[in-house]
Write a protein that binds this DNA or RNA. Sequence first.
DNA 1: CGGAGTGCCTTA
DNA 2: TAAGGCACTCCG
Lengths: 199, 199
Amino acid sequence: MNISIEKKRADCSALPKGWQREEVLRKTGLSAGKVDVYYYRGVRSDASLVPPIRQTASIFKQPVTVYKTQESKVKTDLKQGTQEKPKQLFWEKRLENLTACDANGVIGTTSLPKYIKPLGPFTSDATTIQSLATALHVSSQPITGQTGLKQTIMENPGVFLNPEQPLIASVTITKDDVRRQEDRVKRARQRLREALVAA
Amino acid sequence: MNISIEKKRADCSALPKGWQREEVLRKTGLSAGKVDVYYYRGVRSDASLVPPIRQTASIFKQPVTVYKTQESKVKTDLKQGTQEKPKQLFWEKRLENLTACDANGVIGTTSLPKYIKPLGPFTSDATTIQSLATALHVSSQPITGQTGLKQTIMENPGVFLNPEQPLIASVTITKDDVRRQEDRVKRARQRLREALVAA
DNA sequence: CGGAGTGCCTTA
DNA sequence: TAAGGCACTCCG
């Protein structure tokens, strides 16, 4: 019995981060036996497309905040193969014009620390923060930012962006940074205590 | 204002008799601007599908034989376009096993003159006669029979049959043929007169 | 109209 | 001559 592999999909070190190479064997016709090569880019983290949301699960007697850690798998079977649906590469685009608000209007605004530099096809700080916050929330690996060459990424972000990192330039957090942040939290807590005593 | 033709349906000399070519412009999507080409075959005369029939029209006080010279136009709108109903190409098939009869059984049988040769996907003389009789009854153009190559037509009658001609090989009726037929009618009338006198 | 899969031209 | 890369067909 003659066994031959008809489809083979794999990472490939020569490719930019997040890309895969697929080889498909032609099975019929004059060109049967030839191989077609296809390149696919892995999906960027899209957990944020199903954001944490308040909804009522019937086993609880009150609303509960739930979130999905991974996309539910929906498959469309076309012929014998399994087809993936197209997905949004720059999911941050969806959140571009959304802001938190209450009855009095928009709640605060945010700004980036000076050592966090936006990098990618978006320019607003809000978009950068969304990207970073999602990475921190979802990623199981260290957050480093984009480590590729800025020029390379900016010329063709669809190809060269590292899909597993947020839209910021490479960044290093030192022990000092951590210590400074701990101090800041400590001071904020102290002020809160004083305010409660004074009230 | 930019006017472009979205649908264009026309005869095409490169096509077999009775076929039309339609070009449809894709208006949206990735392939917008491309053209899909469809081929349609004109309907073969199907007047015989509404055969002459005895029925009562209320303005007459007795049954009257009526017949339709052309199909009544029934349109089914599918989406925004006008869809035609599929029609039977070889309508003779419907009549294949029908014969005239009276209380005593089948009335007579028919046979073809030797110079009328059946040509098409049917073999019985009865079918050939139905086809020929309908053509003589309905057609406004001269009946010549199928003028294409017999082999071509037989290999793919659905494509190469001339829809405006009956299922007989090309035939020529000479002045002599007409004169012989006139003589035959004259003699039959003569015999009828004699029979009536004798009765 | 989209997409998988094949035809076939181009390049070296 | 092989591999790459479009164009195109065909069918859902």
